[in-house]
């Protein structure tokens, strides 16, 4: 196995493109090294992206927020401005694993691992996040919901690597939140999860995005759930209708972590609870 630690994104993309065998990107390694331990992955080339300066940046500007692909969960959580602007995205990322894992894991790694239960993904999708994808020849911007195509599958082409995630500019009264259900208090993979992002105008929900995790092969954006609360003050009926829309959008499986029935029911509960938190964070009151 070759180990390379390039210092530019272009170099990384070129290495990945040229490798004929199995080539893997290493950011935090909290998924890749587990796969290697379990014998599920035997890379011929590992490209460590942590030495690329552009991948280590967190930039907050007038146009939005840019988070490098190698920024760890801990660093994300330590950034007060980011936490204030996007509490849901930060809390979702900070839920991944233990403090030990937080020291290594990244949002982009969480995304590219392409697990339907990834914590940061529903929050990013709800936030309207975009990924800056760099290939050996060109760079493109892709909405996060278009990165993962199925369990373990992404739309990235050979040689492509995500350099950063951008979050849109926050307007006025807005808030986001992410909730997941796990059997324990820590260390589990989400059985079901929900991210909600909304903005208010005169106390009424003006825009909203609701995204569910672990209820389908990929995270699911639920426009009907958003519709259910837009134009409302999150009254009981709106919340119930949001919950129903969330449950209706589920296409889950029975597995070691939960049942179809359970996930469908709890998706609605979490969607409702996350919406209430996001509403409160946006300054809303009933």
């Amino acid at each position: 196995m070759r180990y390379e630690a390039p210092t530019t994104t272009k170099e990384a993309a070129t290495l990945l493109a040229k490798e004929n065998g199995e080539a893997c990107v290493l950011a935090g390694g909290t998924d890749l090294l587990v796969r290697m331990k379990m014998g599920l992955s035997e890379p011929d080339l590992i490209v460590d992206i942590k030495h690329i300066p552009a991948m280590q940046e967190i930039k907050i500007s007038a146009s939005g927020t840019k988070i490098g692909a190698a920024v760890s969960g801990t660093r994300l959580g330590d950034n007060k401005a980011l936490k204030k602007a996007w509490p849901g995205v930060v809390e979702a990322t900070n839920l991944i694993g233990s403090d030990q894992v937080q020291g290594r894991c990244t949002m982009v790694g969480n995304l590219c691992n392409a697990s339907p239960a990834a914590d940061s993904v529903p929050a990013m999708i709800a936030a309207g996040a975009k990924a800056v994808v760099v290939g050996p020849k060109k760079r493109r911007t892709v909405t996060v919901e278009n990165i993962v195509t199925g369990p373990g599958q992404t739309s990235l082409e050979k040689g492509e690597v995500i350099e950063s995630i951008t979050l849109p500019k926050r307007s006025g009264k807005s808030g986001d939140a992410y909730l997941r259900f796990i059997p324990r208090t820590e260390m589990d993979i989400a059985v079901v999860s929900a991210g909600v992002n909304l903005t208010l105008e005169k106390g009424v929900v003006k825009t909203a995005r609701v995204c569910l995790g672990a209820v389908a092969p990929t995270a699911v954006l639920v426009p009907d759930a958003a519709k259910a609360i837009i134009g409302t003050k999150l009254d009981k009926a709106a919340l119930e209708s949001l919950a129903a829309a969330c449950s209706a959008a589920c296409n889950p499986i029975d597995d070691k972590r939960g049942t179809v029935e359970y996930r469908t029911k709890v998706a609605g509960v979490l969607g409702r609870r996350a919406a209430e938190i996001a509403f409160k964070r946006a300054g809303g009151s009933k």
Partner: peptide, 29 residues
């Protein structure tokens, strides 16, 4: 009582042979 169990698939293989999905109590539990 609450979370630990061996989960076998239809094929008779163990589905949760690790501390991730064989959930022993953690400190915050």
């Amino acid at each position: 009582a609450l979370n630990e169990e061996y989960i076998y698939g239809e094929d008779g293989t163990l589905q949760n042979a690790g501390f991730l999905d064989y959930r022993i109590p953690v400190c915050s539990d």
